[in-house]
């Protein structure tokens, strides 16, 4: 069986037209694979291109060269060349992404923010809300907050809402960009537990984590991003 994610010679640079067309190389020669049930942690200093690689896998950043093969819908899709429509379909059913920050939609209550990805793939609103409530409870978001939009929540609360939203679906691939960055020890434990649970169900994960303890506990393999440094 092919890997869930198979990246071959992927490359990314930014051309800053407003700064006189200066070319900012980000990564080059990115090669790694992620199997089902495995968590690969990307390591390297800030600015090495870790988040950019996650964004390339998610189709948020365009890939200048190379291939990003994703197992999707019984076949393989190359994200680097996929049509917008195909990327949307991948995001609906195959790849989940937990960013560092919650992009909150005004007025939408927290419980619906969390339930939305399930509703989008056909789960009934009621059933999706039940699952959302379970996750929010498990992440220690008090139920009096569930009907409020998360925009006024603290950083840590917003991040937990974001995690709940990212973990609610059964996507076989999950990308985690510092999921524990602003969490206290108790909630870090919860997230580590959630990641373990995802592994047991065969989810392939790529994560960025700065906390050494969390990294040690979730990483099955570490990929050093500095080896993909693109020389200017």
């Amino acid at each position: 069986m092919p890997a869930m994610i198979e990246i071959t010679d992927a490359e990314k640079a930014f051309t800053m037209h407003l700064q006189g067309g200066v070319k900012l190389p980000v990564v080059r020669g990115v090669n790694f694979t992620v199997e089902s049930g495995e968590c690969v942690v990307l390591s390297g200093p800030s600015g090495a291109g870790k988040s950019s690689i996650l964004k390339m896998i998610f189709g948020n950043y365009r890939c200048d060269a190379g291939r990003i093969g994703i197992r999707h819908g019984g076949g393989t899709l190359d994200i680097a060349k996929a049509e917008p429509r195909d990327i949307l379909s991948v995001r609906r059913s195959t790849i989940g992404y937990v960013s560092q920050f919650l992009r909150a939609v005004p007025r939408v209550p927290t419980i619906d923010v969390v339930a939305e990805p399930l509703i989008a793939t056909g789960t009934s609103r009621e059933a999706a809300r039940v699952q959302a409530a379970n996750l929010l409870r498990c992440l220690n978001i008090p139920d009096r907050l569930w009907t409020l939009p998360p925009s006024t929540f603290s950083g840590g609360e917003q991040q937990r809402v974001n995690i709940a939203r990212g973990f609610i679906s059964d996507h076989p691939i999950l990308l985690l960009d510092e999921p524990t960055a602003s969490l206290d020890a108790r909630n870090r434990e919860v997230v580590v537990g959630l990641i373990d649970e995802k592994k047991r169900t065969g989810v392939a994960m790529v994560a960025i984590v700065h906390d050494d303890d969390v990294r040690r506990r979730i990483a099955d393999r570490i990929v050093d991003v500095t080896s993909f440094a693109a020389a200017a």
Binding site: F14, N60, Y61
Partner: peptide
């Protein structure tokens, strides 16, 4: 392109 792709990249 995809909306977030064009706006973010």
């Amino acid at each position: 392109g995809l909306t977030d792709q064009v706006l973010d990249d």
